[in-house]
Design a protein around this nucleic acid. Sequence first.
DNA 1: GGGGTGTTGATACTTGGTCTCATTGTGTGC
DNA 2: GCACACAATGAGACCAAGTATCAACACCCC
Lengths: 140, 140
Amino acid sequence: MSDELLRALDQAGVRLTGPRREIAALIAKRNGHFTAADLIADASKRRLGVGRATIFRLLDLLAEQGLVERVDLPDGRHAYVPCEPSHHHHLVCVACGAIAEVEDCGIDAVTSEASRRSGFTIESHRLELFGRCPNCRSAN
Amino acid sequence: MSDELLRALDQAGVRLTGPRREIAALIAKRNGHFTAADLIADASKRRLGVGRATIFRLLDLLAEQGLVERVDLPDGRHAYVPCEPSHHHHLVCVACGAIAEVEDCGIDAVTSEASRRSGFTIESHRLELFGRCPNCRSAN
DNA sequence: GGGGTGTTGATACTTGGTCTCATTGTGTGC
DNA sequence: GCACACAATGAGACCAAGTATCAACACCCC
Ligand SMILES: [Mn+2]
Ligand SMILES: [Mn+2]
Ligand SMILES: [Zn+2]
Ligand SMILES: [Zn+2]
């Protein structure tokens, strides 16, 4: 469940505190993308005494380690998804929030073409794909 | 300068009011990306009496018309860039904020490959490329 | 030039996130 | 196991971005 997150945090040399364990468990229990506000609501529902700031701090930490990644939803909200630390992109289901990961499938060709045309040196890119997962598609 | 924006707004059947003309002029005077806060600062520096809300409202309007597009900067800020109303993507210079537009250069292949692998139906995508423009690259 | 209606700006409010700081809890060395 | 140094916590103030409300106003068509 949340063991992977905790293990990775430990590896990174940060302290494994009570609040961090609890928040990690909340994250593991979610599926699809979630916002900081979601976690704050979860925490208060379960009467965990964790502070709002602690949740933001842990999200930052996890993002630094590449264990979660920030996704900018089309409506402007900032969401997170649990994540492999290697470079890849996300498909986001606009109906249920489910996430699929795709590794580079030809995007390097796109960036180098764009670089050639524009004269820019490209240092990073962000690709987000929005659509419907197999479930939500068949459920119509 | 700001004539294009105004003409397009007129075409879309919205009223060409004083505040809208002034804000359009501010946008035209900018280069590269800008935030709502930038415009608010510009407006107050020139002692235009335009309200904060009016600026947000016009940005929404322009975005609906595809005359500006929102770019989510890597640091989480929401910026806007003046824009052609047709689909395309942006290269953003991380040093000076300059923008270049690129039309689809092979991204359809990427999305259909991702769709095939994941089973998702893809409805929209967002690609943002970050790097350095020719100027900033040579200036080192 | 009036008049209906879309627009405006002041202001209050909400939401997302950061900062500070006194208190607590963790890992480490012994 | 114990003490200690220092990382982490939570409460709360604070800040910034954006939205809602509403009375006053201005555009545009006639
Ligand atoms: Mn991922
Ligand atoms: Mn554009
Ligand atoms: Zn779905
Ligand atoms: Zn540049």
